[in-house]
């Protein structure tokens, strides 16, 4: 399988526990526990209606009201719905990624399983910083479209390629994300992503400050013609992570799509296979303090 196919096909096992407040009194606690597998390249909140439909007969209130007043948490950390599942997972489970080799050695001898446990909370007021979902599902699709417009602008210097997609192609594009259809996705994204990008849409996520999203200006090459690397982008945005001689400090690791990436990797080479379904290259910066 190619890198692109592996990136698109990556999935995570999830156990979602739904807030007991949403259930009719007397329903057993285990009823509110859902096990499912979700693609790293998707928004978990987009799947919520489908997930909660399974439990609706046990729940109080209507689905629309529930979705307007709920949010996801992992270990008391709020998971913002507008980030890809893979990025959210890497931000909270980076330790599993760093210890993957040991885990795989151990997993061959014992019956190990990797499950991401998250909770769906419900309340009259959302926690600070949570963007309310008031126009489901259009709001998510609209948000994702604007993400691609921004990415298109960064790649091409204009959003024309994205804005001139036919209605059919736009629908195909979003449906490909919902249904996990990589052929349709690659077909439409090829019309947007140029072979020689102007700049790379890049977002850096720092585990020590997960609410702060860094989006540095990442040109493919600098004025002297040298190709920009991931290290160059980190250096402009998080210079405190650099050790002497301009290299990344030994306590810092860069993770993209759940694997460790070399800091010297050229952005122009990294972007095409490793970009997320929202058009951005998401890199999680792990610094063990």
């Amino acid at each position: 399988m190619s890198i692109r196919e592996l990136v698109w096909g990556g999935t995570i096992n999830v156990t979602l526990t739904v807030d007991q407040k949403l259930f009719i009194p007397g329903v057993p606690a285990e009823t509110g526990s859902l096990n499912f597998r979700i693609r790293r390249d998707s928004y978990i909140v987009e799947c919520l209606p489908r997930l909660l439909n399974q439990l609706q007969r046990y729940m109080v209130g209507n689905l629309a009201d529930i979705l307007n007043h709920c949010w996801l948490e992992c270990d008391s950390t709020v998971l913002p719905w507008f980030q890809p599942v893979g990025v959210q997972y890497d931000l909270v489970r980076y330790d599993a990624i760093l210890q993957r080799d040991e885990f795989l050695k151990m997993a061959s001898s014992v019956d190990a399983i990797t499950v991401w446990r998250i909770k769906l909370n419900y309340g009259p007021t959302l926690p600070a910083g949570v963007i309310p979902l008031i126009r489901q599902p259009n709001q998510i699709e609209s948000y994702w479209m604007h993400r691609w417009k921004q990415a298109c602008f960064i790649l091409n210097g204009t959003s024309k390629q994205m804005m001139s997609l036919s209605r059919n192609d736009s629908k195909k594009f979003w449906d490909s994300v919902r249904n996990g259809d990589s052929n349709d996705f690659e077909y439409v994204s090829a019309k947007i992503v140029p072979t020689k990008p102007r700049m790379i849409p890049l977002q850096l996520h720092d585990i020590n400050d997960p609410s702060r999203i860094h989006q540095p200006r990442a040109e493919c090459e600098n004025s002297s013609g040298k190709k920009t690397s991931l290290l160059d982008a980190v250096a402009t945005t998080l210079p405190q992570l650099l050790a002497e001689k301009g290299q990344l400090s030994s306590s810092t690791t860069l993770i993209c799509q759940g694997i460790i990436i070399d800091a010297d990797e050229q952005l122009e080479r990294l972007y095409p296979p490793m970009k997320s379904f929202d058009g951005f290259l998401h890199v999680v910066v792990v610094t063990i303090l």
């Binding site: 990556g10 499912f36 979700i38 990797t114 996990g180 799509q257 759940g258």
Partner: peptide, 15 residues
């Protein structure tokens, strides 16, 4: 990554 994250994924139906 997939070996580690998709262990026993048959128990977890795709959404």
């Amino acid at each position: 990554r997939d070996r580690a994250e998709q262990l026993h994924s048959e128990l977890f139906p795709a959404v």
